[in-house]
Design a protein around this nucleic acid. Structure first.
Length: 236
DNA sequence: AATGTTTTCAACCGCTTTTGG
DNA sequence: TCCAAAAGCGGTTGAAAACAT
């Protein structure tokens, strides 16, 4: 049982390390009975020897219904690249635009594909993405905006940075939501997402990206949809 | 086939933010 | 209004898998 070498019980008796199917079952039963949240009381109700933090993480990243398994689609990869350019390592914010994907997953994806030890061959996907993008300079403000966004600077310390310029960010706000402050923008990223979606429409001349695809990506039962719509209406 | 190296990603840690009493 | 507990976040780790020699 605790034979799992390398992982032991913590002082308080909490189990750590990889979850077993039996543990998953206990956690799922707990949630079915008591709902999400109150993770600290999981142990008390279910007998699961995991602390609240561990339970929450397991639920959010693995057990939660609606999670997508398998590789990210090219569309999802594009969204990650684009939104990372806008917001940096705001993994959980980015994850709101990829229903069924977790912040952890996105963070891992970014690190393994774009934070290389100076071996840009691995950045093939990003290159492909940029090539895709460079075909789409025709369309006014959004297009030029995103050409700035995707201007790459290869960093001395080997992390690839795709920088949105300050002007770009200001443009984005000015275009879409002139009255919101940057703080509001952070809380209500819908406007930027809308721009991304519109931009994506313009890129989709080869049929790979379908019209309105970003919005179609959204699972309409997903809570973020409500948030997005609310934010949206508050902007206009 | 055996061993060494690299990559992946689930899960941890410490810190910050939010919540509720 | 304050404070403690819970939730949330991003960076990091390391076991296992994949790949190379």
């Amino acid at each position: 049982m605790e034979g799992m070498m390398g992982w032991r019980m913590a002082e308080e008796g909490w189990r750590k390390g990889p979850w077993t199917p039996a543990e998953d079952k206990l956690l799922m039963e707990y949630v079915a009975l008591h709902g999400e949240g109150r993770w600290s009381s999981v142990a008390g109700y279910s007998g699961l020897k995991r602390n609240g933090k561990s339970c929450r993480l397991r639920w959010v990243n693995y057990l939660r219904p609606g999670l997508k398994k398998g590789h990210l689609s090219p569309q999802e990869e594009g969204i990650i690249i684009e939104l990372h350019a806008l917001w940096g390592n705001k993994w959980s914010t980015i994850a709101r635009y990829l229903p069924g994907r977790t912040d952890n997953e996105i963070k891992n994806y970014w690190r393994t594909h774009f934070k290389t030890k100076g071996k840009p061959l691995q950045n093939e996907k990003k290159r492909k993405y940029e090539a895709e993008f460079s075909n789409s300079q025709e369309q006014g403000v959004i297009g030029s905006m995103h050409s700035e966004i995707l201007h790459e600077s290869e960093d001395n310390d080997s992390e690839m940075i795709i920088q949105p310029s300050q002007a770009t960010l200001q443009d984005t706000r000015a275009i879409s939501c002139p009255v919101t402050t940057s703080e509001q923008q952070q809380q209500n990223p819908c406007v930027l997402a809308q721009d991304v979606a519109r931009w994506w429409d313009t890129v989709s001349d080869d049929g790979l990206w379908s019209t309105g695809f970003l919005w179609n990506q959204l699972d309409h039962d997903h809570p973020s949809q409500a948030v997005i719509e609310q934010s949206f209406s508050s902007c206009f």
